[in-house]
């Protein structure tokens, strides 16, 4: 292979890559940025200004929605970690052979089913005429039907459900790589369960914890279906607000500004997480 041939192949491989990313990801975002900094002053005349961003900060409803979305996403991430960790530990350390791979595959199951179907399942279970409400009435535990949908607890539960897979998989793979003899050694030296967990297991699984948390956080922040369907109109989710601006109100300028604000919040929190843990984006996102 001579070098001019190599160069030609490189160009041939580079051009689809650049076309794909350039035309479908980078230029659209640049275009959207320009849209977000223009203001309609008269029909068909626009001026460059930060009015859209100013509107976000002066209207409490908007920034409350964003703050709430970010807060709930962080909470969902933490809860997912707490719920998933014992399960991942059980799969990685307590089980062997076939049972282990079956349970692990079972964890992946919801991923194979559309998010729409999963959310539909929760709606059938939780709504006023749903399975849980009817069963409780039949058992005589409650007198009338109860509406379990359209509240924050349900939205949180749905978000955790959707995120579970992305936490369990990295946790299982890091815990798998922890040598059992280290735990046994800790036990032999008289360590309690809690101290073994704190001194050996958690430090070892830190890379898995970080990458799981980052992926879950990003997915939750950008989630649309679960908060809208399980939370209804009162869900106040920021992606729902973006949809409203674009499709319902047709205020594209403000909607574009909202998109950038969401991207900024998302990347800031992810960047902070990476900085605090000393990892890179490539090592966390590419694995999952």
């Amino acid at each position: 292979m001579n070098s001019s041939q190599t160069r030609l192949t490189l160009i041939l491989l580079l051009s689809p890559f650049l076309l794909w990313l350039g035309l479908l990801v980078i230029i659209p975002h640049i275009d959207m940025f320009f849209l977000s900094i223009r203001e309609k002053v008269a029909p068909r005349t626009y001026e460059t200004s930060l009015a859209n961003y100013a509107e976000f900060f002066t209207e409490p409803f908007y920034w409350n929605t964003l703050a709430r979305t970010a807060f709930m996403s962080i909470l969902a991430t933490v809860l997912t970690l707490i719920i998933a960790f014992p399960v991942a530990y059980y799969i990685a350390k307590m089980l062997r052979g076939k049972t282990k791979s079956i349970l692990f595959l079972l964890c992946l199951l919801p991923f194979w089913v559309s998010e729409l179907v999963r959310t539909f399942g929760w709606m059938i279970l939780l709504r006023e005429t749903g399975v849980i409400s009817s069963s409780l009435q039949w058992l005589g535990l409650i007198d009338g039907p109860i509406e379990f949908l359209y509240n924050d607890v349900t939205v949180m539960m749905g978000l955790i459900y959707t995120s579970m897979l992305f936490m369990v998989v990295p946790l299982v793979s890091t815990l798998d790589s922890l040598d059992d003899s280290l735990i046994e050694a800790g036990y032999d030296l008289g360590g309690s369960k809690l101290s073994i967990l704190k001194e050996i297991v958690i430090p070892h699984s830190m890379p898995g914890i970080i990458s799981g948390c980052i992926v879950v956080f990003m997915l939750t922040l950008g989630n649309y279906l679960t908060p809208i369907l399980l939370g209804g109109k009162s869900s106040m989710w920021f992606t729902g607000q973006i949809y409203t601006q674009f499709i319902t109100r047709f205020n594209w300028e403000l909607g574009a500004a909202f998109c950038f604000l969401l991207l900024i919040v998302s990347s800031t929190i992810v960047w902070l997480g990476l900085k605090l843990s000393g990892q890179t984006l490539a090592s966390t996102v590419a694995k999952s």
Binding site: F17, L21, L24, V25, I26, I27, P28, H29, D31, M32, L35, M218, L221, G222, N223, Y224, T239, I242, Y243, F246, W252, G255, A256, C259, L262, L263, S266, S267, V270, L281, A282, V285, A286
Partner: peptide, 22 residues
Amino acid sequence: YILLLLPLVIPGVILGISILVF
């Protein structure tokens, strides 16, 4: 390589909207 990973980091709603806008 970072650019390659970018589409995974951008929420689906925003990716869709940016293409719509462009």
